[in-house]
Amino acid sequence: MMTYQHLLIHDNGYIRRITVAREAKLNALSKATLTELNNAIGDALATAAIRGIVLTGAGDKAFVAGADIAEFAGLNSEEGRALAQDGQTRVFNLIHHANKPIVAAINGYALGGGLELALACHIRVAVTHAKLGLPEVSLGLIPGYGGTQRLTQLVGRGRALEMILTGDMVTAEQALEYGILNHVVESTELLAKAEGILHRMTARSQTAVAGAIRAVNASLGSNDQGFETEINEFGRCFGTSDFSEGVAAFLEKRKPNF
């Protein structure tokens, strides 16, 4: 098995747990972390002995607190667009279309790219103290890793627009009520719950499970245009003064002045 700098890999029978392990950075998704996720998920999907995947974060503060914003600074609109396209193709769509079930075990904050990572998974379980949100508008950005599409599919247009346009966080209980989460549990039960769901799935016909995932995904229709629009709009944000101000304010730990 490959060794990773930013991930921990643990097998439990048919289930592989992939943990984003950048606790000091609240498990933020750097380019290097996304590359490792692409490799680790691809490897798990290609390993016959693995029938399901749990995706989680290290520590009890954050699942993934977002993208590594410092890496965004200085990108122009074409580079911004490429960033979204690359992440979507290599990680978020890879998860969404995986032929083995992937459960997000949300152990704390799931914000921005972190929530988008969870949204790409097939099922989401969170701890009671988890907070979820898409705060990109406070950076002069929009979600760029599928958030505008996948959140809307789960919660409907009204709820999705409220979360995306305010950038506000919701509690685990609210997220459960909205339909973002399948289950909310105490911290001590999180991994057992996520793995328990997968154990029931891994006991079923694997060809049927893969077929069911494809069929359910097909029910969402061909919304390639939606993802393409998101990627283009995300890229366009990078050319704006609002983006420059939003990122500067974030890095300087002050409120942006839009």
Rank of each mutant, 00 (worst) to 15 (best):
Y4Q: 06
Q5G: 14
G13W: 08
I15E: 06
R16G: 01
N27V: 10
T33I: 11
T33Y: 07
L34I: 07
L34R: 14
N38C: 13
D43V: 09
A44L: 11
A49I: 11
I50C: 08
G52N: 08
V54L: 06
D60C: 09
K61T: 14
K61V: 15
V64G: 09
V64C: 12
I69D: 06
G74N: 09
L75E: 03
E79I: 01
G80Q: 02
A84F: 08
K100N: 05
I106Y: 07
N107M: 05
Y109W: 12
Y109R: 15
A118M: 01
A118C: 05
T128R: 14
P135S: 07
E136F: 13
V137L: 02
S138Y: 11
L139G: 06
G147A: 07
G147W: 00
R150Y: 00
V155W: 06
V155Y: 01
G158I: 11
D168S: 13
M169W: 10
A175Y: 00
G179Y: 00
N182I: 03
V184E: 08
T188G: 03
A192D: 14
K193A: 12
K193E: 12
I197C: 03
L198T: 10
R200K: 13
R200G: 11
Q206K: 11
A210I: 02
I213C: 07
A215V: 10
V216A: 13
G221Y: 00
D224F: 02
D224A: 14
Q225L: 14
T229L: 12
T229Q: 14
E230C: 01
R236L: 12
D242P: 04
F243K: 07
S244A: 15
G246S: 04
A248K: 15
A249H: 00
L251K: 05
F258Y: 15
